[in-house]
Design a protein around this nucleic acid. Sequence first.
DNA 1: GATGAATGAGTCTTCATTCAT
DNA 2: GATGAATGAAGACTCATTCAT
Lengths: 201, 201, 201, 201
Amino acid sequence: MGGLQARTEDKHKRILQAAIKVFAQNGFYNSKVSEIAKEAGVADGTIYLYFKNKDDILISLFEEEMERIIQSMKHEIEKGKDPFEKLKRFAFVQLNSKRENPDLAAIMEVELRQSSKFMKEYVNKKFIEYLKIISRIIKEGQEVGIIKKGLDPIIISRAFWGALDEVARFWVLSSKRRISLPKSAEMISDVFIRGMVEDTS
Amino acid sequence: MGGLQARTEDKHKRILQAAIKVFAQNGFYNSKVSEIAKEAGVADGTIYLYFKNKDDILISLFEEEMERIIQSMKHEIEKGKDPFEKLKRFAFVQLNSKRENPDLAAIMEVELRQSSKFMKEYVNKKFIEYLKIISRIIKEGQEVGIIKKGLDPIIISRAFWGALDEVARFWVLSSKRRISLPKSAEMISDVFIRGMVEDTS
Amino acid sequence: MGGLQARTEDKHKRILQAAIKVFAQNGFYNSKVSEIAKEAGVADGTIYLYFKNKDDILISLFEEEMERIIQSMKHEIEKGKDPFEKLKRFAFVQLNSKRENPDLAAIMEVELRQSSKFMKEYVNKKFIEYLKIISRIIKEGQEVGIIKKGLDPIIISRAFWGALDEVARFWVLSSKRRISLPKSAEMISDVFIRGMVEDTS
Amino acid sequence: MGGLQARTEDKHKRILQAAIKVFAQNGFYNSKVSEIAKEAGVADGTIYLYFKNKDDILISLFEEEMERIIQSMKHEIEKGKDPFEKLKRFAFVQLNSKRENPDLAAIMEVELRQSSKFMKEYVNKKFIEYLKIISRIIKEGQEVGIIKKGLDPIIISRAFWGALDEVARFWVLSSKRRISLPKSAEMISDVFIRGMVEDTS
DNA sequence: GATGAATGAGTCTTCATTCAT
DNA sequence: GATGAATGAAGACTCATTCAT
C-alpha cells in the first residue's frame, strides 16, 4: 500500500520533472502533452490521472517548485548576520539557482511574465511572497538605520530581483563563460547596497 | 499613386497595431490571426499580403518598433549633460514607455524572454543594441572618473535594465496607482548611481 | 478598332499559351491563376475578362486546340494513298505532336483521363471525333478488303490511339534519347497493320 | 492482442478502401480528407494516425495495390503455355481488373499519368516492373523464334499496355454494354500477336 | 491504476474571384 | 478594357483530451 502510494507519487514527480525539461526546451505552447508523457515514460492518458489538463501541469509546477524555492531561500537568508549580508546571499542563491536548475529557471523566466490569465493570480501570490523576502530585509535595514528611509522597499525589492533575473538570463545566453556568476552576484548586490546605504555624516 | 501607396502602408501599420493590441491581450499563442484581421478591419487573407505568416507579424513588430524605440531613446539620452543625468533620463523614458505604449511593452516583456527560436537572433541583436545605450553611458562615466572602474558595464547595464523592466511590470500589475512612475525612475537610478559612484576621498 | 480587336485576341491567345505552359508544368490543380497571369504578362483580373473561371481556361484550351489538332490530322491523313499508309501517317503525326508541342501533349495526356465532371462531355465529344479519324480508316480498309472484317473499328481505333499515346509518354519520360519517335511510329503501325491485315490465301 | 492488431490493420485498410472510392469519384484534388474519413467511418484525425498526409494516402495506395496487382498478374501469366497464350492472358486479366476493381483502376488511369512530383519515382518504378511482365514475354517469344526479332520489347510492351488501358477506359465510359471485355481482350491480343509473329516462309 | 488509439474542435493558410480605380 | 489589392470560403492538419480495454 505504501509502496503503491510511493510509486504514485513517484509518477507525479516524474511527470513534473519531464514537464520542466520539455517546457524549458520548447516553451509551454510548443510543448505537446505527448512529449511530456514520453519524457516521463508514461502513457499520454496517464498524465490526466495526475493533472487536470496541460495548464494544470504548469500550475502544479509552480505551486510545488515555488514553495520549495521560497523555503530554501528563506533558509539561506537566515544565515546572513545583517541585512547587507542577507542581500548578498539572496543575490548569490538567486543567480546560482540558474546554474543548478536551468530548466526550471528558464520556465520561471518566461512564464512569470506571461499574462496567461489562468496563472496570474496564483503565480503572483507566490511571487510576491518571494519578493517579500527581499523587502523584509530592506525594511529591516531601514529599521536598523543602515538603509535610507526614503526608499520604497517594494519598489526596490522588485528592482533588485529584476536586476538579478536579467543578469542570470544574460549568463545563460552568453554561453556561461564570459562572466562568473558569483562575481555578478557580488557586483549587483554591492551596487544596490552602496546605493541604498544611509548616509553617515 | 501616392494615395495608393499611403493606403497600403496604412494597412501594414493597421495590422501591426492590431497585432500589438491582440498579442498584448492574449499572448502570441492564444491570439488568432482572424482576431488580428478583425481588429485591423481587414479580411483574414489580407494579413498574408503584408506578412508571410503569423510569426512574421511578431518579427516585423519587433523589427519596426525596436528600431523606433532605440532611436527615440538615443535621442532622449543626448539631452543629458553628464552620465548620471543620462541614466536618469534613460530610467524615466524606459518607465514612461510603459505608460505610453502599454500593449507594446507587454509584448516586449514576454517575447523578449520567450525562447522562440525564430526570433532569438534578431531580437537579441536589437536588444543588445538597446542595452549598449546604457553600457556606453557607464563606460563614459568610468572614463570621466565618476563611476567605479571595477564595475562591468555589460553586467550593470543588464541589471539596470532588468530593474527598470521589472518595476515597470509591477506598475502595470498594481493597477497603476500605488506608485508613481517618475518617482520609481528616480529611486532606481538614484540607487544605481550612488551604488556606482567612484569613492572620492 | 481592328487593332484593338487584334490586341484583344492576342491577349486571349497569350493567356491560353501561358496556361498550356503552366498547366503542363504543375498540373491543373497545382497551377495558380496568378501564375498564368504572370506568365501571360497580364494582371490577374484580366484573366476573368477572357475566361469565366479557371476551369474555363482548361475547357477553352481543349476547344481550341482539339479542333486545330483534328483539322491538322485530317489534312495530313488525306495525303495517304491507302488505309495502311494513312495509319502510318496518323502514327507519325500523333507521335510527332509530342515533340512539337510537348506542353499541350502533357496536358491532354492527363486531362483526357481526368474525370473532371465539367469537362467530360465536351472533351469526350471532341476526342471521339478524333478517334473517328482512325476508325474511318479502318472501315475503309475493311471495305476495300485489306483489313479483317471481324475487327471492331471502334475498339481497334481506341487500341491504336492508346498504344501511340503510351509510347509518346514513354518517349518523354525516357529523356527522349533511347528511342526515335519515327521508328516507334513505324513499329507500332506495322504491328497493327500486320495484325489487322486480311488473310489472302 | 491479436485482436487489437487486427483492428488496427483493419482501420488502415478501411481508410485505403475509402480513399479508393473517394479518389475515384472526385479525383485526388477534389477529394477532401474529411470525406475519406467519413467514408471509412473514422474521425478526421484518425487518418493521420495511419498516414502522414493526404499525399501519403495516395502513395500508400499505390505501394500496396501495385504490388498486389503485379504479383497476381505474374501468377496468372505463368499458367500460359507459350508467349502468345501468355499475352492473351495478360490482356484478359488487365481488362478484367477494370471490372473487378473499377475504382482502383480509375485512379491508376489518371494518377499514373499525373506528373505529381512526389509520386513519379515510386509509381514509375512499380509501373516499369509491371510492364516488364509484358516485355519479358515478348523477349521469350523472340528467343523461341515466334516473334519478330526487330521489334523493341520495351516499345511494344508500352504499346500493348496502352492499347489495353485505353480500351478498358472506353469500356467504362460506354456504360459497359456495347462491347464485351473478353472479346476486346481477344481482339487486341490477336492483332498484336499477328502483328508481331515471325514470318515463316 | 495504466494505456494509447481514437476523437474532433480549432486555426492557419491558400487562392479563385471580385471590384473600385 | 486593365489592374491588382482585397476578399473570405474552404480544407489540411494538429493535438489536448477521452475512454474502452
